[in-house]
Design a protein around this nucleic acid. Structure first.
Lengths: 112, 112
DNA sequence: TATTATGCCTCGCTATACAAGGTATCGCAA
DNA sequence: TTGCGATACCTTGTATAGCGAGGCATAATA
C-alpha cells in the first residue's frame, strides 16, 4: 500500500506504545507484527522503528532489557521493550489526540 | 487543541484540495475557514499554508489568479486559487489514501 | 494620524522517515 | 566446514515540511 511519509509520521509512536501495552516486544518483532496486523498496508522499516524506539526510551516512555530467545525459537539475543507508567499515560493521551484529530479533519473534508 | 506537527503533516494537502473543489479561495481565507470548520481544533498557520500553496501550484495541482476583493468586503488584492484537473485527480486519490490509512492504523491500535 | 485587520510573503530551525549500509548470531544444507 | 538465509540489532546521510518570527502593503476605523 505504501503510504507517504507525511501520513506515517504521526502514527509510529501511538502504535508502538499501544503494542507494548499488550506485552513486551522486541524491535524486529514489532516491524513484522505491524505489517501483519495491517495486512501489509503499513510497511514499517527498521530504519524508522529503531531510532523511534531509542527516542521513546530516552524520553522515559519505554525501557529495554536484553534477553535470549526462547529455546523453541532460537536466534540471537533480543532487546525487549516494555512500557513505563509515563508511557502508559502518554498512550492514553495520544490515542485521544489521534481520534480528535482524525475527526477534525473529517469535519473539514466533508465540508461541515 | 494544538495538534503536534507529525499529525498535521499528512492533512494539509488533502484539505486544501478538498476546499478548492468547492470554490476558488485565497490563502488567508483558507486559514480562517479551516480554523472555523474544525471549531478551532486545527489552528493553521500562514507560515504553513503559503508555502504549501506554492508547492501545489508548482506541482500543477492548483493555479492562482490575482483579483480585487468585492466592493462589499473591501481589503487589498487577493490571490485566488482554483483546483486543476490534475489536482482533482489527486484529491480523490488522497482522500482514499487518508481513509485507508486511518483504518489501517485503527486495526493495529485496536489489536486486530 | 495611529491602529487594527486584512492579505501576502520568506528565512531559519527542527524533527523525522527512510534508503543504504553495516555487524552479529543462529540453523541448515551442500 | 563452509556458505547462506533468516533473524536481530544499529547508524549515517538526505530530503522534506511545519511553524515561529519577521517583514511588507493596503484598507477601514477610531
Amino acid at each position: 500500500m505504501e503510504f507517504p511519509e507525511e501520513l506515517v509520521r504521526g502514527s509510529i509512536v501511538p502504535i508502538v506504545l499501544s503494542l507494548l501495552r499488550e506485552r513486551p516486544m522486541y524491535g524486529y518483532e514489532i516491524v513484522k507484527l505491524v505489517n501483519a496486523r495491517s495486512n501489509g498496508a503499513l510497511e514499517w522499516k527498521e530504519g524508522t522503528l529503531y531510532p523511534a524506539l531509542h527516542r521513546l526510551q530516552a524520553a522515559g516512555k519505554i525501557k529495554s532489557q536484553w534477553r535470549d530467545a526462547p529455546d523453541a525459537e532460537g536466534g540471537r539475543k533480543r532487546k525487549y521493550y516494555t512500557i513505563t507508567p509515563s508511557g502508559l499515560a502518554d498512550l492514553g493521551q495520544k490515542v485521544d489526540e489521534w481520534s480528535n484529530f482524525t475527526s477534525a479533519v473529517q469535519k473539514v473534508l466533508r465540508g461541515a
